[in-house]
Write a protein that binds this DNA or RNA. Structure first.
Lengths: 118, 118
DNA sequence: AGCGGTTGCTTGGTACACTTAGCACATCAA
DNA sequence: TTGATGTGCTAAGTGTACCAAGCAACCGCT
C-alpha cells in the first residue's frame, strides 16, 4: 500500500470530477484514452502520478487543454491565473462569437445568480 | 539495450544542444536538476523518455519554459485553442470552482440553447 | 613517469507506472 | 429467482524510469 502523500491526490479528485461531469464511466474514459480502467481508478484516488502522455490523453478525452491538466498536476509553473481579476467564465462568455449581446448578458446574469445561490 | 525508437531521441538532441549552449556539463546540469548524471546522459541519447517532472526541472535549469520543453517532447498539441474541440465557455464553466455540478450542467444547457436559438 | 580533476558512459539494481484478470455489488429483464 | 450488463476496485505481474557506484579517456600539473 503506497502512501497517497496528498499533493497530487488533488489531481485525482480533479480528474474524477471532470470525468463525472462529462458523464463518463471509468471504462468509457479508458476506451477514449487507451489507458486501462483500473489504472484510471488508481490515478483518481491519488495512488499513482500519471505520466505526461497519460495526462495528455485524459485531457483530450475530457476536452480540456493539456496545459490545464499539467497546471493542475503542478507540472507547469502555475502562472495560470493571469486572467486573474476577471472571472474566467464571464470573460469566456463575453468573448464568445456565437452569442448575441443580450444572450451574453442574460447568461452572465444566470451565472452570477448561481454564484450567489450557493 | 533498449531500442531508441526515434521519435523522442529528437528531444534528447534538443536537450543536449541546449545544455551545451548553456556551457554546462552533465554533472552540473544534474546538480541543478536533482537528476542523476547517468540518467541525463541516457535521456540525451534517447534511451529513455523522461517523466514530466524531470522535463520540468530540466527546463527550469536551462531557462526554458516548461511549455517549450513539453512541446518539444510532443506532449503538447501546439494547436493551443483555435476554435478547438470544446468552446471556451463550456470549458470555463466546467473549471469554475464556485458552481455546483448541477449548476454547471444547467448553465451549459442554457448556453447551448442560446447557440441553437440564433 | 606519475598525480588530481574533469569529461561522458556502462552496469546492476530498485521503485513505481501501467496492464490483464477477475471480484463484489448494483440494476434491470426474463 | 436467474442471468446479463454496468459500476468501481483488488491482485499480481511486467516493463521501464531512474539512481548509486564505478569505469575509461582526456586534460593540465609537477
Amino acid at each position: 500500500m503506497v502512501a497517497p502523500s496528498e499533493p497530487w491526490s488533488a489531481l485525482g479528485d480533479f480528474i474524477r470530477s471532470q470525468r463525472q461531469l462529462a458523464r463518463l464511466s471509468l471504462r468509457q474514459l479508458a476506451e477514449l484514452t487507451s489507458v486501462s480502467n483500473p489504472y484510471l481508478s488508481q490515478i483518481e484516488r491519488g495512488l499513482y502520478r500519471p505520466s505526461a502522455q497519460v495526462l495528455k490523453s485524459i485531457a483530450e478525452a475530457l476536452h480540456l487543454s493539456a496545459e490545464t491538466m499539467y497546471a493542475e498536476a503542478g507540472l507547469l509553473d502555475q502562472r495560470v491565473d493571469e486572467a486573474g481579476a476577471t472571472p474566467r467564465v464571464e470573460q469566456a462568455i463575453r468573448l464568445d462569437t456565437g452569442l448575441s449581446t443580450e444572450q451574453k448578458e442574460t447568461l452572465i446574469q444566470v451565472y452570477r445568480g448561481f454564484l450567489r445561490a450557493r
